[in-house]
Amino acid sequence: MRHWPLFALRVTTPRLELRLPTLDDLDALADRAAEGVHEPGGMPFGVPWTDAPPDERARSTVQIHFRQWGAWSPDDWSCSFVVAWEGRIVGTQEMAGRDFAYTREISTGSWLGLRFQDKGIGTEMRAAVLHLAFAGLGARHATSSAFVDNPRSLAVSRKLGYRDDGIEVHRRRDGAAQQQRVRLAREDWTARAGFEIHGLDPCLPLFGLPPRA
């Protein structure tokens, strides 16, 4: 699509492909949301969208991508990829930036279908967007956060070299819960073999960056 080149942007790793979703991809991602993305009773998200019935979870999964595409601007963007593994859509990995041309800082968030967890996919898909951010877009920092009772997410961050960056308190359901902020500086990032970026150059202005000469 000439006027929205993001649909051709992909990041590939030894096992995964990250891409903006087609409508069929969104259907598959919605199925993952309906199946479940965490154990019952837990809540790893500040907005408890997984408390909704399966059909509502599926519908909201589709809608968030439409909202992000419609709201995208070079000064404020959220790029949510679907994650394909062995030909199946297994989850989503987001990378977001505000005033990125000035801050050179991105944030990340993700979820993975429950039955695809504990396979190393979560670490690899986060590493993929870090490769896009640092090697592709020239980011200087990447940030993330997780509730302190979400050790899986924090373990992924620490495995990838993030350092603790303070505690915040947020509402979660009908109570308060602590979130651990984490930050990864470019100099602490380690590039991985077999990670490749495809179709980035036409997208650079949409990320607030000048086109390559």
Rank of each mutant, 00 (worst) to 15 (best):
W4A: 11
P5W: 13
P5Y: 09
P5I: 14
F7G: 08
A8K: 08
L9Y: 11
R10C: 14
T13S: 10
T13F: 01
P14N: 11
E17N: 05
R19H: 12
L20A: 06
T22S: 13
L23P: 05
D24Y: 04
D25I: 03
L26H: 03
D27P: 05
D27S: 10
A28F: 03
A30Y: 04
D31M: 04
D31K: 02
R32W: 01
A33N: 02
E35M: 03
E35N: 03
H38V: 06
E39R: 01
P40C: 00
V47G: 02
P48D: 12
W49E: 03
D51G: 05
A52F: 13
A52R: 05
A52C: 08
P53N: 05
D55N: 09
D55R: 13
A58T: 02
A58I: 05
S60F: 07
V62H: 06
Q63L: 05
Q63K: 13
I64F: 15
I64W: 15
G70K: 13
P74N: 09
W77S: 08
C79S: 06
A84K: 07
W85C: 00
R88N: 01
I89K: 06
V90I: 11
V90L: 13
G91W: 04
G91H: 09
T92F: 03
T92V: 12
E94M: 14
E94T: 15
M95G: 04
A96Q: 14
F100W: 07
A101S: 11
I106T: 09
I106V: 15
I106S: 10
S107M: 06
T108K: 13
W111K: 02
W111G: 00
L112Q: 00
L112V: 02
G113V: 01
R115H: 07
F116N: 02
Q117P: 12
Q117K: 08
D118R: 14
D118N: 06
K119V: 00
G120L: 00
G120R: 01
E124D: 10
M125N: 01
M125S: 01
A127S: 08
A127Q: 05
L130I: 15
L132K: 10
A133Q: 12
F134P: 00
L137V: 07
G138H: 15
R140E: 11
T143D: 05
S144Q: 07
S145A: 00
A146N: 07
V148Q: 13
P151V: 00
R152M: 00
L154Y: 15
V156E: 06
S157W: 10
R158V: 09
K159V: 03
L160M: 02
L160C: 00
G161R: 02
Y162F: 14
I167T: 15
H170N: 15
A177P: 08
Q178T: 14
V182D: 09
A185K: 10
R186P: 07
E187S: 09
E187K: 11
D188C: 14
D188Q: 04
W189D: 02
A191E: 15
R192F: 04
A193H: 08
G194W: 07
F195L: 09
I197E: 01
I197V: 15
G199H: 15
P202M: 12
P205L: 09
P205T: 14
P205M: 08
P205D: 12
P210V: 06
A213H: 11
